[in-house]
Design a protein around this nucleic acid. Structure first.
Lengths: 150, 150
DNA sequence: TTCAAAACGTTGGCACGGCCAACGTTGGTT
DNA sequence: AACCAACGTTGGCCGTGCCAACGTTTTGAA
C-alpha cells in the first residue's frame, strides 16, 4: 500500500535552513562518534584545542573564545581537570579568576583529537572536489561573518 | 590586559564541520524565533507541512517521512491534536495504526508557518547572491545525499 | 493453521549543545 | 565608601535526536 519514501519532508528538502541543519547534524554525528573514541565531547575539544594553541586563560576568556557559556565551561573544565588534561589554578593577580592551562597530556590529547577532526572532515566532504570544498567553506564563512556582528 | 577576541575557536574556525554547525545554529535560532510566534516548534512544522502536502498518514509513516523518531512523533501529534490542528483516528484497516490528518486550521497554520519559513530563508541568506544561494543549496544537497544512503 | 517475527503506538529515559538566572566573591570607578 | 562590573559556580530549561521496552495487532512462514 504505502512504500514510504526515504526521508524528505516534502517541500522542506530544498530549503537552505533544512539542508544546513541536516548536514550539520550528520557532521555532528560523525564528529561525536570520532570523539567518543577519546571519551570526550565537542566542548572538551574546543577548550583543549584553544588552550593548546593560545596558551592558558581564565574560564570566562575560554568561554568567550570558544563560544561556550561560562556555566558550561565549568563542567567541561572539571572533566578535563579530572583527567589531568588541564590544570585549574587561582590567578594571583585577580582572585576572581582561575587560570586554566593544558598539561602535556592535554596537549597530546588535543593533537590526537585534531587528527580525528581532520579525518572526519574528509569523511564529511568525500563527495566534494577540492574546489567545491573551498566554495562551501567560503560561502559558509560569509554567512557566518554576516550573522555575527555586534 | 586581555582584549578578548570575538569568538573563534582557534584553528577550528576554518573547519567545514565547525562552519556548518555554526551556520546551522544561526539558522535554527532564526527559525525557532520565527516559529515561536506561532507557539510551535520545528517538529510541529515538519509534521504539519508533510500532512498538508501529502495527505493523511500513520504516525510511523509520518516519522519516516519527516525524519522524526516514532516516540517523538507521539508527543508532537499530541500537541497538534490538542490545538485542533490535526486529528488522530484509528485506522479501521489496520488496528495497530492511527491515521493522522491535518484539519482546516492545521492546513492554515502550515501555510502561515511556511511564510515564516520563507522569510527566515531570506534573512539567513541575505549576504548571498542568487547564484551563490544555488551553489550552497547544490553543495549541501550533494553532501546530504551522499550521507543518506542505506 | 499455528506460531514466530515484524510493525505499530506509547512511555520513559539519555546525550548533546546552547542558554539563562541567581548567588557570593572580588575588582575597578567614582 | 558605594556602586557596579566581572568572575566562578550551581541549577535549571529547551530542542533535537536517539534508544529500549512494553503490549497490541498483523503478516509470513513452517
Amino acid at each position: 500500500m504505502d512504500h514510504a519514501a526515504p526521508q524528505s519532508p516534502a517541500g522542506l528538502s530544498t530549503t537552505p535552513s533544512w539542508l544546513l541543519n541536516q548536514t550539520a547534524s550528520h557532521a555532528t554525528r560523525l564528529l561525536s562518534e570520532g570523539f567518543a573514541a577519546h571519551d570526550l565531547r565537542g566542548y572538551h575539544y574546543r577548550l583543549l584545542a584553544t588552550l593548546a594553541e593560545q596558551g592558558p586563560a581564565s574560564q570566562a576568556d575560554l568561554g568567550r573564545r570558544c563560544g561556550i557559556d561560562r556555566s558550561d565551561v565549568v563542567a567541561a573544565v572539571n572533566d578535563l581537570a579530572g583527567r589531568g588534561l588541564v590544570v585549574r589554578a587561582p590567578d594571583p593577580a585577580d582572585r576572581r579568576r582561575n587560570v586554566i592551562s593544558a598539561t602535556g597530556a592535554g596537549a597530546d590529547e588535543a593533537r590526537r583529537m585534531g587528527v580525528t577532526l581532520d579525518r572526519v572532515q574528509d569523511d564529511l566532504l568525500t563527495p566534494l572536489s577540492t574546489t567545491e570544498r573551498e566554495q562551501l567553506t567560503h560561502l559558509l564563512t560569509r554567512l557566518l561573518h554576516h550573522h555575527s556582528r555586534p
